[in-house]
Amino acid sequence: MERYKILDHEADTGFEVYGGTMEELFRNGVYALFSLITETETVHPLIEKRMKTSGNGELFINFLNDTLYLWDTTGFIPGTVSVRIRDQNAEGLFMGEFFDPARHTLRQEVKAVTYHKFRIVEEKGALKATVIVDV
């Protein structure tokens, strides 16, 4: 199954994310987000990072913004992602590496993942989330 699709808008960029389960949806959300920032294909799973997010009703957006925080403060790029969700909490376990300008290319700066038009819907037995990011 396709993991995500990048959407293109005049002022900003967004993506559609797909997943069989909520965990998969979150995981693919991280892949989609980082595909906007850098080339994730060349990231080696060398370093482990863990992250815990408590939601305000929009756990998915909060989770993605927290990965963005991790990136912005440490330069960490997740290569592989696994997620566990309980109630309004999400735990992420990432294997990846720190950004190295000699090996990684930067695509663009993502300021934040917005709540604008955000929704998760069920389509043909799978979940689909639509997200707009501010770049």
Binding site: N56, G57, E58, N62, N65, Y69, D72, T73, K111, A112, Y115, D134
Partner: peptide
Amino acid sequence: RGLGYQVCDDYIRQMIK
């Protein structure tokens, strides 16, 4: 820069509530 983005995101989280 990132400081402003974070302030905005922090407060949107609170303002939704």
